[in-house]
Amino acid sequence: MHHDFIDKYSNLDSPVHRIDSRVKIVFFFSLILICVSTPIYHIRAFFLYFLILIAILTISKIPILHVLRKSLVIIPFVLIIALFIPFTETSETVFRFNDSPDLMMNRWLLFWNVLVKAFISIITLILLNSVTRFDDTLKSLSAFRFPIVLINMLSFFYRYIFVIIDEAERMQRALVSRLFRGRSLIHAKVIGDLLAILFLRSYERGERVYLAMCARGWDGQLLIVDKKPLILKDSAALIIGLAALLLIRLWSV
C-alpha cells in the first residue's frame, strides 16, 4: 500500500538537503514568526517571503506541484475563518489601519491577512518536511531541549501511523468483499466495531513494542542526538538566512 509520506522527498540530495537540520528548523520557524508578525499591507514583504520559499524550492528540486497539492489542507481552515469574518469587529483593535477607506475594505484585508499568512506558513512547513528527514527533525528538536516524551510520541506516531492506516484499509477491504456498503445508519455499529478492533490491536501492539524495547535494554530515551557543533557552512547559511528575513521585516515596519 502506498501513502504520501510525511517527509516525502526528504531523501533527495541537494544543497538544501545537506544543510544541518537544526539550521533548517530555526530558519523555517523564524520565517513563520516573522511572516505572521508582518502587517498585511506591506505586500512587498510577503512577495519577498514567497520569493525566498520559491528559491529554496528550486534549489532543493522539490516538485512544486507536490507542495501546492499538500498546501490544500489549509483550505478548510481558511474557509472556516472566512465564514466568521463578516461578523468580526473591524475596529483599530483588530489591526491598525487608520485611514481605511471603508469597513468592507477592512474585512477583505482581514481575510487576505489570514489567507496569505496561513499559506506561507503551511508552505514553509511542507518545505521543512520535504528537505529534512523526519527523524532528523526529531533529533534536532531534542537538541533544542524539546520535551523528550513529546519527541518519543512523535517518533512512534511517525513510525506507526501508516501501519495502522494499512490495517484499517485491510479491514475495510474485508468488509467490502463481503458486500458491506456502509450506507445506512444501521451500519454504524459495524464501523464502530471496526474502530474498536483497530484500537485494541493498536493497544496490544503497543504492549508488544514495549516488550521489544525492554528486551533491548531500554532506559527511557528513544533517539539520541550526536551533538556535533555546526560547521562553518551551516552557520553561514543560518546567519545569511536570518539576516535576510530581518531586513525584509525591518524594511516593512
Binding site: R133, F134, D135, L138, S155, F156, Y158, R159, Y160, V163, R205, R208, V209, L211, A212, M213, A215, L222, L223
Partner: peptide, 11 residues
C-alpha cells in the same frame, strides 16, 4: 520477535 513491526519501532 515474531512481528518485525513490533521490533522495529524507530523512525
Amino acid at each position: 520477535f515474531q512481528n518485525p513491526d513490533d521490533q522495529l519501532f524507530c523512525p
